[in-house]
């Protein structure tokens, strides 16, 4: 069975249930956490690979907890020709996938750290960040 890649998005008020534990224990899923950016009382994201018979039930449980579940089919990339390294995205990107190199002040994009939240796509003044399906 191929693993399913998904993104979980937690709102500020998501309950503090031990969700990973529940997914393993109650739904018998095999979990590989690829990225996690979760802080108490803040919005957070987690990218997971899930495998198991009760996959759909597991997702249902997550949704019941107020967690938004999204398949990881999209990818964000940078149009190098449009980017002028202004830096406007670097303070907004939650995972530092977009960051400033010092002292050159060039903006680097590390897609490995990108959780496809797409904040940069909205924020980039030059429309240099694009979504690919």
């Amino acid at each position: 069975m191929a693993p399913n890649k998904i993104i979980l998005r937690f709102g500020e008020n998501t309950s503090d249930q031990p969700i990973i534990y529940r997914l393993v224990k109650d739904y018998d899923l095999v979990i590989n956490i690829l990225k996690a950016n979760v802080n108490p009382n803040k919005e957070g994201t987690m990218v997971l690979e899930l495998t198991g018979e009760k996959y759909e039930e597991g997702l249902g449980y997550l949704r019941d907890q107020g967690i938004r579940v999204q398949p990881l089919a999209e990818e964000v990339f940078r149009n190098e020709e449009r980017c002028i390294s202004c830096g406007a995205c670097t303070g907004i990107c939650p995972t530092h996938a977009l960051s400033l190199e010092r002292p050159s002040m060039e903006v680097k994009f590390d897609s490995d750290n990108c959780i496809v939240c797409q904040l940069c796509v909205k924020v980039c003044p030059l429309k240099a960040m694009e979504v690919r399906f």
Binding site: I84, S85, G87, G91, L100, P103
Partner: peptide, 22 residues
Amino acid sequence: KSGTITVNGQKIPAAPLSSYPK
């Protein structure tokens, strides 16, 4: 440009809107 400034005693991240490389 170091990326952190202190405002009201709090350390906060700072980012530019003007391209220094350009």
